[in-house]
Design a protein around this nucleic acid. Sequence first.
DNA 1: ATTAAAGTTCGATAGTTGTCGAACTGTCAA
DNA 2: TTGACAGTTCGACAACTATCGAACTTTAAT
Lengths: 108, 108
Amino acid sequence: MGTRNTDTRNTDTRNQDHLCRAFKALANPTRLRIYQQIRDQRSGEVADSGCKLVDFINSLKVGAPTVSHHLKELVNAGLIEVRRDGRFLTCYLREDMREELRRFWERT
Amino acid sequence: MGTRNTDTRNTDTRNQDHLCRAFKALANPTRLRIYQQIRDQRSGEVADSGCKLVDFINSLKVGAPTVSHHLKELVNAGLIEVRRDGRFLTCYLREDMREELRRFWERT
DNA sequence: ATTAAAGTTCGATAGTTGTCGAACTGTCAA
DNA sequence: TTGACAGTTCGACAACTATCGAACTTTAAT
């Protein structure tokens, strides 16, 4: 079984859960910062500079376990993905999710 | 003293708090529903049908105190405003805030 | 193989949130 | 003015969240 049409709720309701989890993930200052940093560096000139997990640990005022926890939340909400890149975990924006959120805020 | 330039944080940081509080307000299924209902009815044909607080109490599965609480959160986050309209409180979308959020999700 | 750095997991704890019922305060119609 | 409906405030409580330190695993450099 796939993930589509496997429950009795309608598309709107499922879509709403989806949105709601995204907003929840961004409803924390530390996570919002992380998200923005990943989004903003992505369009920078040095494409390979990356957004490494370790940099968040060093730049933010929270410890490694907390950063690990927050990153997991962002991944679970579908906002970012994390890949191993040599010694480091690097974070990437999920453009599909960003597009979905952009559509939500679009003018009628 | 006004509300501008009265602290040492930069504009980005203040703007982030702003966004964060908006996302927090939408990070709850009941509040997201309320917000969407207000937003969607606004562009409906019968402009004066309004989004009355009492209708939320009847249509959602939560009691009056809870709706009251949620509405206050949405107001405090700057997402909606509430005005008395005869016997009822009616909810209106804050278009300025919507625009701000639209800009956040805009493509680079 | 050692070691150092990168990252996770666990358990604890303080703080926040969603919800309720009860009691309260308007506001309008009869 | 009384009664009914609209809405708020308060106190309580369970559930959830953010954070930490300690202990652990994984990765790569030496």
